[in-house]
Nucleic acid binder design. Structure first.
Length: 853
DNA sequence: GATCTGCATGTTTTT
DNA sequence: AAAACATGCAGATCA
């Protein structure tokens, strides 16, 4: 961060008049700051007469005469009467100057066009708003509205929203603005591209776009404070947002129809209601009520009222002015000094970006609700300012206990750290509990990666998981950092409610559900739409839908939803790794469906049928038995039976009694689920699972096989491992394989013979034949070498097993089932290494020959 | 062997 | 192309 230059920024009061200000430093005050005056101010003259706040944060120092004029509200009348920017108040007809920093808070842009003097504006709007608030208190809808509008506002207006952590001398109006908000990238345009005049006017509009709502602190701030503050930052805001492109986007989102049609620098189009109402959602509590705190423009002539209204933007401005002590002489001079303006803006930026206090990505914009704010602020008189939020990634929510902080957010809102070790950061959670995290960074690609370490306990206490959102707020005046959270499901509910209430442009849940046909997706689509609106991204829907669906799978709540994020930033969309996981989950979900057929009621229990979303599910009072129906059989050998089943219950002890699988069924639930997952994978891809040769644990490769099992599968080494069997090998495996091949070939011969007999002239359709034979290769002979084992336990009762296989094969042929074709408990783990059918036949023949020999 | 720590890497988003 | 960020990974440390 560069150190502030000694030369103060000086903001001109001659914006409309086009006169360059006196370059005198107000702090030294040798010359009246009024460009039209330039009267010498005697050193040490007391009391000092001050005017508006400059962007440097200092106050314009005026000579007595100008100061008096200024304080009486006649500054523009006196000095800018010939300048541009004069309009008439739509209500009282009073002449209002709209074109300079001095008059910046004396008027309000109207929704319908035109302007109102601040007195009328306050009368007509603010008081109504206040009365509404006071009458009803902050209801969620109101707050949300404010939030939404605020969002809109930021999208259209605020680039250089700077922090404003300045102290009011007496705390009279310790009102805070919202966070320093960035504009979405899509809305950005190089500041340098803008004419300075437009810039200043746009900024003017921005300033007036903020309307206060209320401030509960009785003691009004000294007018001059507010007044000067509101002048100090004009021109800091990146005006580019209001350039067509930006504005169009932002307005489109919220249905704003007004446009800035005014000639650059002079007059202004109406500001939308949304904009006008937009305020940073800040909550202020007093003894009796909670108030929204927004912004205000306080006219010089209305200091009392001004005192009752806070000015978020002024706060920001002040902060900015603290940060920026560059020279702003010409920023609003109206002089076409674009180059200088550029420099100024750049200076602002460079200084500000020293801590990256701007340009947060939209996905980090806090979307905190009033309830959350209330919860955070509790009963205190504190003012809670949402800073940013972040959706927890898998690694954030994981056990590693490191929460990756968005760089800009970290740099903007957390203490500056120069050492990677960082510093401990005390954070209070929504319950008032305090945590100490280590705020630090890692060097990363010539940059930094900020993390909050030690968050696991906090995350766990909040029961957060990936996809949930943590919010960071600041509680003033203590300056305490507050960490809130939002479960993903909550968001949807609230937003849906709001959407249903209407008026914010969001689709209702119903609509979305209808559109997507699935509630979970629908809600996510809601977000995706929001995101789309934000980013203009195209594919948000599908991606987010998917992840949301997955979340839905995970979460009991049907309304699981992802917080609004840009396209691809939701878990499962932004991150490919996560996405892959989620896609896996989807696959698992599918296999769960398929696995329905693998679930069987425990013996002596009848399942009850539950209908969920039109789908029938069997509900078991006891843990169901997992197994493939076709594979059920009695195990007479006492081991490794095809009838082995897996119970899902961890408590179940061989609930699948009849299988005789012994301890097989006594697997823990996790094992059962693992097995199910493995089955799913097998079923999906027909791939073999990674082999596990551990004899201590039941292998997942052969779920049906148990430790000690000596079946042909279990004694077979993992694919590619172990010695090859010679053709003359007389081991059990080889003998079994040969015997089975013999049987199979005989059966095949027999079948062919019968077919010949039955349909002599009919050529055998290859497909039909293949279909008929389809089951057999699966259960039958793998190709050598080494002869892959037949999956069944053929050692003890080979003949019987073969018959069972045969029957099973016929069943498969008769009842095509994805499960039966995809998930085969008898699947051969190394089947993927099977040679092609052609070579298969050759191998078969060779085997047969071997066997015959 | 589990966990912690610091960094590296790959992917996605932004400029 | 650069920046941001999620997460993998290897070495260190601990139980």
């Amino acid at each position: 961060m560069s150190s502030p230059p000694s030369q103060s920024a000086a903001t001109t009061a001659g914006g409309a008049a086009g006169a360059a200000p006196a370059p005198a430093s107000p702090s030294h005050g040798k010359i009246c700051f009024n460009a039209h005056c330039k009267e010498q101010i005697a050193e040490g003259s007391s009391p000092r007469r001050r005017g508006w706040r400059l962007r440097s944060g200092e106050l314009a120092e005026l000579c007595a005469r100008c100061a008096s004029t200024y304080e009486q509200g006649g500054f523009c009348d006196t000095f800018h009467s010939d300048g541009d920017g004069w309009r008439k108040c739509e209500s009282c007809g009073k002449r209002v100057h709209c074109g300079c920093i001095v008059s910046v808070d004396t008027f309000m842009l109207l929704d319908a066009g035109g302007v109102e003097c601040i007195a009328c504006a306050r009368k007509n709007f603010i008081t109504v708003r206040i009365s509404q608030l006071n009458a009803s208190g902050p209801v969620p809808g109101q707050w949300r509205q404010a939030s939404n509008m605020w969002k809109t506002f930021t999208q259209s207006d605020l680039q250089q929203r700077l922090s404003y952590e300045f102290d009011r001398p007496n705390g009279a109006d310790r009102l805070i603005s919202g966070p320093r908000l960035p504009i979405p990238s899509h809305s950005k345009k190089k500041v340098e591209d803008l004419p300075d005049k437009l810039s200043s006017h746009i900024n003017r509009v921005q300033l007036n776009g903020h309307i206060n709502v209320n401030n509960s602190f009785g003691s009004p701030p000294v007018f001059s404070d507010l007044h000067r503050e509101e002048r100090c930052v004009v021109g800091l805001h990146d005006p580019s947002h209001l350039v067509e492109e930006t504005d169009t986007v932002a307005r489109r989102e919220v249905g704003i129809s007004n446009t800035f049609s005014a000639p650059a620098g002079i007059s202004f189009g109406p500001l939308s209601n949304s904009n006008v109402n937009t305020s940073i959602p800040t909550i202020v509590k007093d003894e009796t009520s909670v108030h929204l705190v927004g912004l205000v423009s306080s006219p010089p002539s209305d200091s009392n009222n001004a005192g009752r209204i806070s000015s978020a933007h002024s706060l920001r401005q002040t902060h900015a002015s603290h940060l920026v002590k560059q020279s702003f002489h010409n920023a609003h001079s109206g002089v076409d000094s674009s180059g200088e303006a550029q420099t100024q803006v750049r200076n602002v930026r460079s200084r500000v970006e020293g801590r990256c206090r701007n340009q947060l990505l939209p996905r980090y914009w806090p979307r905190i609700t009033d309830q959350e704010l209330q919860q955070i602020s509790g009963d205190s008189n504190s003012v809670v300012t949402p800073l940013f939020e972040k959706m927890l990634s898998a690694s954030d929510a994981g056990r590693i206990g490191r929460l990756v902080l968005p760089k800009k957010c970290a740099e903007a809102y957390f203490p500056a750290i120069s050492q990677p070790e960082g510093l401990p950061l005390k954070v209070q959670d929504a319950n008032g509990q305090e945590w100490v995290f280590q705020f630090r960074f890692w060097p990363n690609n010539n940059s930094r990666m900020y993390v909050l370490e030690g968050v696991t306990p906090c995350i766990q206490s909040m029961k957060l998981q990936a996809g949930d959102t943590v919010t960071f707020s600041r509680m003033d005046p203590e300056g305490k950092l507050v960490m809130g959270f939002r479960k993903a499901s909550n968001v949807s509910n609230e937003q849906d409610i709001q959407a249903i209430k209407g008026g914010n442009g969001y689709p209702t849940t119903k609509e979305v559900t209808h559109r997507n046909g699935r509630s979970g997706e629908g809600i996510s689509a809601l977000h995706s739409r929001t995101l789309k609106g934000n980013s203009g991204s195209k594919n948000a829907c599908s991606k987010v839908d998917k992840s949301a669906f997955i979340q839905n799978e995970r979460t009991p709540s049907k309304s699981y939803v992802l917080p609004p994020k840009r396209k691809g930033t939701a878990p499962g969309s932004k991150n490919k790794r996560l996405r892959i996981e989620n896609e896996d989950s989807i696959e698992l979900k599918l296999t769960w469906e398929e696995a329905q057929e693998l679930l069987h009621p425990p013996p002596n229990h009848k399942p009850s049928i539950v209908v969920i979303e039109g789908h029938e599910f069997e509900e078991y009072e006891e843990a169901p038995v997992l197994g493939k129906p076709a594979a059920f059989a009695t195990n007479e050998a006492g081991h490794c039976s095809s009838a082995s089943k897996i119970t899902i219950s961890g408590n179940s002890k061989g609930k699948g009694e009849s299988d005789g699988g012994g301890g097989a069924a006594a697997e823990g639930s996790s094992e059962g689920l693992d097995t199910l997952a493995n089955l799913a994978i097998l079923g999906e891809g027909g791939e073999s699972l990674p082999s596990s040769s551990s004899s201590q644990q039941p292998t997942t490769r052969h779920p049906r096989h148990r430790p000690g099992c000596t079946c042909i599968v279990c004694i077979q080494p993992p694919s590619g491992k172990g010695p090859k069997h010679k053709p003359s090998c007389q081991c059990n495996v080889c003998l079994t394989v040969k015997r089975r091949f013999r049987t199979l070939m005989l059966r095949k011969e027999k079948r062919q013979q019968s077919e010949k007999d039955g349909a002599d002239n009919k050529p055998d359709p290859p497909t039909a034949a293949a279909a008929q034979k389809a089951p057999e290769p699966q259960a039958a002979p793998p190709p050598p070498p080494p002869p892959p084992p037949p999956p069944e336990s053929v050692q003890a009762h080979p003949q019987k097993e073969e018959e069972e296989e045969d029957q099973a094969g016929r069943r498969k042929a008769a009842v095509p089932s994805p499960i039966k074709t995809q998930i085969d408990l008898n699947i051969q783990p190394d089947r993927e290494e099977e040679p092609s059918p052609v070579s298969d036949a050759g191998n078969l023949m060779r085997l047969l020959q071997d066997a015959a020999a």
